[in-house]
Design a binder for these strands. Sequence first.
DNA 1: ATGAAAGCGCTAACAT
DNA 2: ATGTTAGCGCTTTCAT
Lengths: 332, 332
Amino acid sequence: MTKTSGTGARKVTRKDVARLAGVSDAVVSYTLNGGPPVAPATAERVREAVRLLGYTPNASARALKLGSARLIAVIVPDSSNPFFAALCQAVEDAARLEGYAVLVVNAEGDRSRTLPYLQSLASRQVDGVLIASPIDESQVAAFNSSGVRWTMLNRSAPIAGTLSVGLDLIEGARVATAHLVGHGYQNIAFIGQARPDDHRYMGWRAALKAAGLDAGPAIFSPFSREGGLAAGRELVALRIRPDAVFVSSDMMAVGVLRAFHEADLAIPGDIAIVSFDGSPESEYSWPPLTTLRQPVDAMGADAVAQLIHPEPGSQGHHRFEGELVIRRSCGC
Amino acid sequence: MTKTSGTGARKVTRKDVARLAGVSDAVVSYTLNGGPPVAPATAERVREAVRLLGYTPNASARALKLGSARLIAVIVPDSSNPFFAALCQAVEDAARLEGYAVLVVNAEGDRSRTLPYLQSLASRQVDGVLIASPIDESQVAAFNSSGVRWTMLNRSAPIAGTLSVGLDLIEGARVATAHLVGHGYQNIAFIGQARPDDHRYMGWRAALKAAGLDAGPAIFSPFSREGGLAAGRELVALRIRPDAVFVSSDMMAVGVLRAFHEADLAIPGDIAIVSFDGSPESEYSWPPLTTLRQPVDAMGADAVAQLIHPEPGSQGHHRFEGELVIRRSCGC
DNA sequence: ATGAAAGCGCTAACAT
DNA sequence: ATGTTAGCGCTTTCAT
């Protein structure tokens, strides 16, 4: 029906445009990219030719010449986690404003995949990659020798050898737990990942200690809805049931919530919850979750800026703070 | 500390590898891409040189030469909708298996953005784009003249002028509503988008008509959690409250659920719900939602295959069927 | 089995 | 103000 071009057999190059406009190829470049000044009439003819031919510059050629594909990547552990979905969107929005496209890569929680992905991205000539999935300090050297510029995103604390941006999880968990303490709960549990250096765990401990409270039970489970459900059931089965719990992410919290509902527990009546991240689903669970919101938009934008416009002496860590969003699950 | 390479100043080219290995550039290509046979000893020297130098081929140059960047894109209305997040992941997984990377683009529900995005993707030399956001038939011609191969994903019915894959929404909504009918509910409402040609609306109508039931109230609202909440509140305020409701997506349904909880309605006791999509959050809402699950993995993989390996005479529409996942919200 | 060389489409320095 | 031209790093045909 349409006779413009078949199934993707485009061949219109800058040269065709030049011929049609009756100028040299350079003038086409000048017109399009704003190089040396071009006579208004000529520029208009060029633009007309571009329109007529439906010309779009070949980004591969441009990237080869310029050494930049105006492309960045972000590696996340799991893009189906609404928190990371929101983070990716923030990154994408910030990048688009600068004319960069974003490649989203799912590491699926496997730390050993990060380096291979980084290398494959390097070969794609990405201008930089944001790593939002957890890494080991021992990986830094290998990442640095991959040849791509990279920055840690979603990093709780500084890490030697690279830039990083993220929320202070210790402080965030402390604030969230302290809120529970303020409500007067005495036996406050922890649900999170089984990592000895989990900063949220440390924050929870710190808040309890500061209040002179004994540490409640800590239940470790995978970082997923299923993991939250399992942890919630475990908590429900405890001989002495806690009267409140800090959950390490909203995604886990919806699983925990389900376990509590199944056990016919009133929330916050029988047990109060405060969770973490502030992703959209926390507002629409039942009851709505009091949660420590991470400023994903600001963090994403900051990381993109850092990657694209690296400040000369830029080093170290950009620390963000969360904000406790009060809803029903804590008993307020 | 690490002295391998600074902030991304890589310069290792195929030529360096050739020099170090004492061969010509062609042999490096042959070794890496499996062209004409290379003597085992030579190949080994080349591979060693690659390792030593940390050489990664320049994808831009390769793309320029080959005319393919091994890159596809997917345009979705909203990647924070878990259904689309899952769809994107399915696409990404399928694409990665073929060595393609995926660019995810958010059209943010604005149909007029699709064409500009398509053009910007065309200039990036993507090998194809999957459009999963709704389009108007009138846009097809313009898309076809963009020069990029494209396929509709998440399309309910055939569309003239292009390939498409998706679930039959009329049939899906019919099945979901019929399930409610089977439960004996008499006054079954609809919540969805205000589009006259909404196939889910048509399916709901069809199921009711087939059962000899009058159409219940239809409430139209934006396709979001907020939209669902507003619609739910509207429904609650109705003089004659329906005893069941079909909701067009899980994301809207969590909003509806919240409205019902706020009104202290028992689900499914006071009002039953069946929703649509089968995204992860439907399993973790309270109560868990009975929902028509879309086979996102199969659809994503099929669309990718269609884009990457277009069958010669391939035309028309790949129709998928959903599966009703029975949980609590319907009264089962 | 290996090498030389053309050329993919573009930008930018240099010439006019 | 506009044209010429040298590469960017790669694949691949054609020689050897």
